[in-house]
Design a protein around this nucleic acid. Structure first.
Lengths: 326, 326
DNA sequence: CTGAAAGCGCTTACAG
DNA sequence: CTGAAAGCGCTTACAG
């Protein structure tokens, strides 16, 4: 049988009210009484039912997290940052995916209406933005982890895409490269525009191929440039998957990396250190972005005002053999 | 203001009992009444509070999931399988990590005692096994996703490690290799023993190097074998990280893969297709393992008896260039 | 087929 | 400093 606050009260010879008070500190309780209650709690192994506490208090001490997919290469890092932070604050973490499409969104919306969590963390909500916005308007605290669009209506955390692009360019230029080919993700993503602008400002070029954030884009971007006889001595790939595809296409075309062509990626996913050669890349601080977003949300739940501006965390250039220094 | 069952009842001119009945089907309600109630529910946008339902029913319609880490290469696939299955059943998924050590475990134990979820999915609970076992004994439904140890006390799902090892050996033998070097993970893991036995049965060797499931182990395993002048024409690495380290060490030693040495890994993590050359590997059906474990847990919560034997899902050999056919 | 009432396990004014 | 009572929003015998 579950032990309840009533058991503790009876055993300690006090009212449930008093037990509740020693449980929730703050209120004044005679120290002897408190000690006795605490002892009974310990002996009985009593832990308040989270459901009952939630109902009585009108909050669940749980935050929700919505992601498009759990299998993206950098998702684990973000999740870990979120999980550690949320957990350290004594909150639970309820995980949702859009993986099953409309069905998933419906399930998610149901849980929101059911008040299953107090606040929500969202990653790159490309196709759920309207849903999220509606929930936010109705009072659900939300923090976005999002590079793709800029959404001034939400508190959000992002990374220095522009400076990251610039750092890639500066590194390539410093190592003597002058004729870059840039292979980007979809141009309607904010991060793509930012990375591109930052890069071009330092190392201008008109060799820019737009695609998706996939290996296939990297491969075909290189193949097409070679077929068209374009002259380039380095590649700035807008993420590491594109870079991996580029490395492969270059190898198959007989171009040596980095001797003929240097390659720089973006993200620093786990794979980046295992390509051949290992990839120089602009590292996004994924775990810290998760931690930061979680902290912002928790602060909001505690009543603090959210920052109006997105919180922007710095990227960091990680130099490996695909684009060595010098 | 939140809309409650009382609002619906008032608006529809019935009792809360009746509303509850149309909500929870099963019970008999006059179809006209039911239709009216449903309409009011729709108009008001009423959704039952999960906290209140949970309290009244004594269950939370939520399952917990405990993982040592969220950043392991195959974790995303497992999580996705679990999330999809749990969500399709209308359950919530509460995520816990051991990443913060004793603190994490304490937080987790608290949530268990608080009855925050109805059942628990656990991945590779190397250092929390005692904690989990105690919870299980006290009545918490648990399903393990676990290859490392064999825990007859728990329902669990695993993969065919022995047959997977054998398939690697058969493939190497069929392509003409006769002198394997095996680089394993820790020998106290059940999966390591199984993979090794399956392999040795088909392709015996005494060149077996034990290590950890890391790239470093792969690298040093190869280096040591070469330094000792061992003669081998293929490598069976017990996971893909070891294989990646082996590929690198072989390349640095001037041994061509696959011409001089063929390499087979285990797992088929996303990285496996990006190594140079791409890795032939024994694929673990991670997503299906997640789905299966979740389904078993949900079936248990619905009152079905758990299978006594571990549910074992088949591995599949994925042939790429590091160990081509023929 | 329907409803009044008790109960799930807490918290929180209110009163003392 | 402490307790009786109402309330959080549901479900579920019980009675009709």
């Amino acid at each position: 049988m579950r032990v309840t606050i009533a058991d503790v009260a009876r055993q300690a010879g006090v009212s449930k009210t008093t037990v509740s008070r020693v449980l929730n500190a703050g209120a004044e309780v005679d120290s002897t009484t408190a000690a006795r209650v605490r002892e009974v709690i310990r002996v009985l192994g009593y832990v308040p039912s989270s459901g009952a506490v939630g109902l009585a208090r009108g909050s669940s001490r749980t935050v929700g997290m919505l992601t498009p997919s759990l299998t993206w290469p950098w998702m684990g890092e973000v999740l870990q940052g979120v999980a550690d932070t949320v957990e350290a604050a004594g909150y639970g973490l309820l995980l949702f995916t859009c993986n099953r499409g409309a069905d998933s969104v419906r399930h998610f919306a149901g849980q929101v209406s059911a008040r299953a969590f107090d606040g929500l963390l969202v990653i790159e909500p490309e196709d759920t933005l309207d849903t999220i916005a509606a929930m936010h308007r109705r009072g659900l605290p939300v923090v976005l982890i999002d590079d793709r669009g800029h959404h001034p209506a939400f508190p959000s955390v992002a990374t220095t895409n522009r400076a990251g692009g610039a750092s890639a360019a500066a590194h390539l230029r410093a190592s003597g490269r002058t004729r870059p080919l840039v292979v980007t993700g979809r141009r309607d993503f904010g991060c793509v525009r930012d990375r591109l602008e930052g890069f071009l400002e330092v190392l201008p070029t008109d060799l820019v191929a737009e695609g998706e954030f996939t290996e296939e884009t990297g491969r075909s971007g290189i193949e097409r440039a070679l077929a068209e006889g374009r002259d380039f001595d380095c590649v700035f790939a807008h993420n590491d998957l594109i870079a991996a595809g580029a490395l492969r296409a270059l190898r198959e075309a007989g171009r040596a990396v980095p001797d003929d062509v240097a390659v720089v990626g973006f993200d620093d996913i786990p794979m980046a250190r295992h390509t051949e050669p290992p990839l120089t890349t602009v590292r996004q601080p994924m775990r810290r972005m998760g931690e930061t977003a979680a902290r912002m949300l928790l602060a909001g739940l505690a009543g603090e005002a959210a920052p109006d501006e997105p919180v922007v965390l710095p990227t960091e250039l990680v130099v490996r053999r695909s684009a060595p220094a010098l």
